[in-house]
């Protein structure tokens, strides 16, 4: 055995809980960072909001985890919880895929909408869930987001949208594409009523969602390293016949190219959103 491999092995062992600790933790109570491999107790992992303290990777959150982490306890009122797709095209294998993700996530479709308070400030909120069909946008996602924007407009609430999406949902064909129009038009109506739209890009936000409501907010924040783009990396590489740099379409890349206002660590997001909401309180202008 070479010296190098002995050293490597040692280093690897260092990040694993001791044998004693291992015996004390029942199965399922530890989480492993998929990026650097470091293992954490479930409790610490949750406290860290799934951001690895070792390598800084922001792992994906479910919609409800995001809401729990951000909104004041018991303040969330959900809208349109039971809305479901009708599989309008009777697309092959779609029903099975939906059922599977419904069981996996406990959601009817890929977005949760509603309102609540952040440190006492009232806001409407939309959170896309990347664990449900990669948060692709079909009729339900489009309709729920449009309705949430309409509700926020009527109730004169600001709106915070956590974007995540693989793009338009292929299995609903052109109906999915038209949700780009519907949601963008809803943003337009919300805008013209004076509403404040804060979009937070999370990993990954692509395709038809990037080309609709996600890109036309008043403020664009993004989580570190989140993938944000229109076309897929593979398709671009095939088209231009060259390899793209590693940081292509990351949050930092979009910051550099002017599409994002600020890249924000997940642990600092609540404080930032609180300040933004505070800066948009009407009282400041009235006095």
């Amino acid at each position: 055995m070479q010296f190098k491999s002995i050293f490597h092995k040692k280093k690897k062992y260092a990040s694993i809980p001791t044998e004693k600790a291992k015996q004390e933790i029942p199965e399922g109570l530890v989480e492993k960072c998929g990026s650097c491999g470091k293992i954490y107790y479930e409790k610490e992992w949750t406290q860290q909001l799934k951001v690895c303290p070792n390598c800084g990777t922001h792992h994906r959150l479910t919609a409800y985890e995001r809401i729990d982490a951000l909104l004041d306890a018991e303040s969330f009122i959900e809208w349109d919880q039971s809305m479901e797709t009708t599989d309008p095209l009777k697309f092959p294998e779609y029903q099975e895929k939906l059922k599977k993700d419904q069981v996996k996530t406990g959601l009817k479709d890929a977005v949760v909408t509603g309102k609540g308070t952040i440190n006492g400030y009232e806001t409407a909120i939309v959170v896309m869930d990347p664990f449900f069909r990669m948060a692709s946008m079909g009729a339900v996602v489009g309709e729920k987001i449009a309705r949430a924007l309409e509700n926020a407009r009527e109730e004169q609430l600001p709106m915070i949208i956590f974007t995540a999406s693989g793009g338009a949902r292929m299995q609903e064909g052109m109906i999915s594409l038209m949700q780009m129009a519907k949601t963008s038009m809803a943003v337009d109506r919300f805008n013209r009523s004076g509403g404040c739209l804060v979009n937070v890009f999370t990993h990954p936000t692509t395709g038809g969602v990037t080309a609709s409501f996600a890109s036309i907010g008043d403020y664009h924040f993004a989580e570190p390293k989140a993938l944000i783009g229109f076309a897929g990396r593979r398709i671009i590489e095939q088209t231009i016949r060259e390899k793209l740099p590693d940081d292509f379409q990351t949050a930092e890349f979009q910051l550099e190219h002017g599409q994002v206002d600020k890249v924000v660590h997940r642990h600092e997001l609540k404080a930032l959103l609180t300040t933004v909401l505070d800066l948009h309180q009407p009282k400041g202008r009235d006095e």
Partner: peptide, 25 residues
């Protein structure tokens, strides 16, 4: 829409999204 490096750098998604929003009104 063209899937290319320059297109992404110059905001292909934003350009389409903005058109949808502006055409709305």
């Amino acid at each position: 829409a063209h899937p290319g490096k320059g297109a992404e750098e110059r905001g292909q998604g934003e350009a389409i999204a903005r058109n949808l929003m502006e055409m709305a009104h």
